[in-house]
């Protein structure tokens, strides 16, 4: 029974010693799936890259926003710190006390042990 030759490879009769296998050119139609796979992989990579970039950009925006917010809060904290310092100056407290009708006592009595 004759064996059908494989389409890609043809077994040639040996010329001198051993057998020689000649690779025949592939048919064009078999390359298409590989190109499509490659394109799909590249496209997928691009999509992943774009997604990652978007996430990074979003993170950068959030970071920038948080940095701005931190700076604003820091500035507000400093402003409040100064306000507290100003509000606790004796000058302001005395003025506020005067406005409220307070004053230094005109007569002071010191309570203590009676000494002879």
């Amino acid at each position: 029974m004759a064996v059908a030759a494989r389409p890609a490879d043809v077994l040639l009769q040996p010329q001198r010693t051993g057998a020689v296998v000649r690779r025949l050119p592939r048919r064009r139609g078999r390359r298409v799936p590989f190109a499509m796979v490659a394109a799909a992989v590249v496209a997928a990579l691009l999509i992943v890259l774009a997604g990652a970039q978007a996430i990074v950009s979003q993170g950068a925006f959030q970071l920038s926003e948080l940095t701005d917010r931190a700076q604003r809060l820091e500035a507000e904290s400093d402003r409040l710190r100064l306000r507290v310092a100003r509000l606790s100056t004796p000058d302001r407290i005395v003025a506020a006390g005067r406005r409220a009708g307070l004053g230094m006592p005109t007569q002071v009595e010191t309570l203590g042990k009676e000494y002879p």
Binding site: A85, T89, P90
Partner: peptide, 8 residues
């Protein structure tokens, strides 16, 4: 630099 007490 700030001196909240002014002349204090």
């Amino acid at each position: 630099r700030t001196y909240p007490g002014d002349s204090l």
